[in-house]
Amino acid sequence: MDTTVFVPIDATATTAGVAAVRARSLAKTYGKGAAQVRALDAVDVDFEAGRFTAIMGPSGSGKSTLMHLLAGLDSATSGQAFIGTTELTGLGDKELTLLRRDRVGFVFQQFNLLPMFTAEQNITLPVELAGGTVDRAWFGTLARTLGIEDRLTHRPSEMSGGQQQRVAIARALIAKPDVVFADEPTGNLDSRAGAQVLSFLRRSVRELGRTIIMVTHDPAAAAYADRVVLLADGRIAGEITDPTPEAVLAGLDALRSLDDTIDGPEVNG
């Protein structure tokens, strides 16, 4: 039975435990006067722990801005962003740096691996830079799950794009962060390598208990997620549960047709 649902989000609905990531009336404005652009408009949304959530929307909808604010990579104009019970919007630069180091993982479209280091050295670098000790059992689990056990001594130039992205995922997960943010993680990969990377992201959620929030423009990529959050004009427009590529395309089409009629306060809950 098709259980796909496209509905407005009620961010006030109670859930078991504390959400991994939350936004409350989160807004971001760029520029001043006539040149002012409201990239994010009073967003309320929760992201559950132990789930894979995709964020989608038309170009300029605010999806990357939302991710950057939730990850502490940019500052909000108003509102609040939380990771667990920690309010990012109340932290100073040093505290934000420590939070990103200790509690957040990142996977980007560009793999951002250090070319002079092996795969293993790239993976363990965040822990070593933080002065910690690598959990070798967890390292082994990641290498096996991501299928890179035979690439650990290779440098990035000796690996395919898909292999490099899997190393980047392992690097994002090595410190067991509260949440991993993935920004167009398959944008530089062919369809086969992209499908493999998305499968590994989904496995890291289902088998390793991780929490992943991914920004993507690709309906096929979004279909790997447990849930898709849709944005339009800087506002939350709805969500798709148990997404399929067809359901995501239909949701995006609905956004275009409803663009002029969406009532922001009702949609945002």
Rank of each mutant, 00 (worst) to 15 (best):
D93Y: 08
S64I: 08
D102S: 14
E149K: 02
T77W: 10
E149I: 02
P126C: 10
V37N: 13
R103H: 13
T141L: 12
R155H: 11
D93F: 09
Q110K: 09
T86Y: 03
F52N: 03
S61W: 01
F139G: 13
Q36K: 14
T53V: 12
Q121L: 08
E87L: 01
G131I: 07
A81S: 14
T97F: 04
R100H: 11
Q109M: 08
S75T: 14
G131W: 03
A34S: 07
D74E: 15
T77H: 07
A34C: 01
E128W: 00
L146G: 07
A39T: 07
R24N: 12
G50D: 14
F52G: 05
P58S: 00
D41L: 00
V21S: 12
V107G: 11
T77A: 05
E149Y: 00
G17E: 07
L114I: 13
G17I: 04
V18S: 14
T85K: 15
A130R: 13
T29N: 14
W138R: 02
G62E: 01
K63Y: 08
L69D: 04
L40S: 10
T77K: 03
T141R: 15
A76V: 08
T145Y: 01
N122E: 03
P156A: 13
K94L: 09
V107C: 09
F111Y: 13
L98M: 13
E128K: 09
M116D: 09
G31I: 12
G147C: 01
L114N: 05
T133G: 02
T118D: 10
F52L: 10
L125D: 09
